[in-house]
């Protein structure tokens, strides 16, 4: 499904992107994600396709706001039955609850359900009007952090089984990884879209790279066969747009900075010498800072640290493999 919307109020925003399967719209707070979602539901005035000009009542969408807005005085099945018009409303509602796996909780009120269960009641209620598009606002926010991943996974599976195109807006990279299609939004505009693995591995610009967790980003000057960063030459395969002499940005993920093992022959290229400025555990991994010609965030899996037994202040070599280095157009900040 193609979306092209122009919103003037409450913020100026033009968005053009596709929705394919379970689509996640990723962006920082305040860029207009929720506004765009509400515009698709018809709750914010906008021009464009699809559904331009239709009131919310006439749009075939299922909208799940951030707080889900379940009717607090109704039981789960009454909530689901609310949009149903005729016939056996109770039977239909129970069937919908069964589809989302909540039949046994049909007689509970929203305050007796967990965050994940409330989310599925809201989904069943949205399904009751046979939407052709589902809109989810920050679906991770209502969930308990400890069980978030599992509950989200189940929700996404459920939505995939229903086969309804879905747009979920979020600032949570966990959700973005579960997407069939990832759209990245900046202030008032769409920055990039594509399959998540493509967007993650090849952000189109600095803003996208920052949003997707690239911690090591440097202004660079393009040279034949690579780039110059802070006086050192890094080899990498240049994309067609890159012309020697131009400025650009080069980035590498902290977990893709590789520490060179002293007992092995050193790699041929992109080896940097320096000092491990600090090192501390982060969950099951170790996070450190490498200080050489450039300063790099380093994230070591524990099996690597178990073998290398690195300590702060020690000298070491790191290698920036060419296929992990990512070049993006753009002037220095």
């Amino acid at each position: 499904m193609e979306v092209h919307y122009l919103i003037r109020k409450p913020i100026l925003l033009e968005a053009r992107f596709r929705i394919r399967g379970f689509t996640v719209l990723l962006g920082e707070s305040g860029v207009g994600k929720t506004t765009l979602l509400r515009a698709l539901a018809g709750l914010v005035k906008a021009e464009g396709k699809p559904y331009g000009g239709l009131p919310p009542e006439r749009r075939p969408v299922g909208y799940l706001p951030q707080d889900l807005a379940l009717f607090p005085h109704m039981t789960a099945w009454e909530n689901v039955a609310f949009p149903l018009r005729t016939g056996q409303r109770r039977q239909q509602a129970l069937a919908l609850l069964e589809r989302v796996g909540l039949l046994e909780h049909a007689h509970k009120r929203p305050n007796q359900l967990s965050g994940g269960q409330r989310q599925r009641v809201a989904l069943a209620r949205a399904l009751a009007r046979n939407p052709e598009l589902l809109l989810l606002d920050e679906p991770t926010s209502a969930l308990d952090p400890l069980t978030k991943d599992q509950v989200l996974g189940e929700l996404v599976d459920l939505i995939r089984r229903e086969g309804i195109p879905t747009l979920a807006v979020s600032h949570d990279p966990i959700l973005a990884r579960m997407a069939d299609w990832l759209v990245v939004m900046g202030p008032g505009t769409i920055l990039q879209e594509g399959p998540p693995e493509e967007v993650y591995s090849a952000p189109s610009q600095l803003l996208v790279a920052r949003l997707l967790g690239y911690e090591n980003l440097f202004p660079a000057r393009i040279e034949p066969g690579g780039v110059e960063v802070n006086g050192i030459h890094l080899r990498l395969s240049l994309p067609p747009w890159a012309r020697p002499g131009d400025t650009a940005w080069v980035g590498i993920r902290a977990e893709e900075v590789i520490v060179v093992r002293q007992d092995r022959p050193p790699p041929a290229e992109n080896v940097l010498e320096g000092v491990l400025a600090n090192l501390h555990p982060e969950g099951l991994a170790y996070r450190g800072v490498f200080q050489g010609a450039i300063r790099l965030q380093v994230l070591l899996p524990r099996h690597v640290q178990a073998r290398l037994n690195l300590r702060p202040e020690q000298r070491l070599q790191v290698v920036l493999k060419t296929h992990y280095l990512h070049l993006m157009p753009g002037e220095a900040d």
Binding site: A41, G42, L43, P55, P56, E57, R58, R59, V61, G62, Y63, P65, D67, A69, F71, F82, P83, R125, A126, A128, R129
Partner: peptide, 15 residues
């Protein structure tokens, strides 16, 4: 009254 309830009711196509 939670305004979200009224908005969601609209998106559910309810008169």
């Amino acid at each position: 009254l939670d305004r979200n309830l009224l908005e969601v009711a609209r998106t559910l196509g309810v008169p």
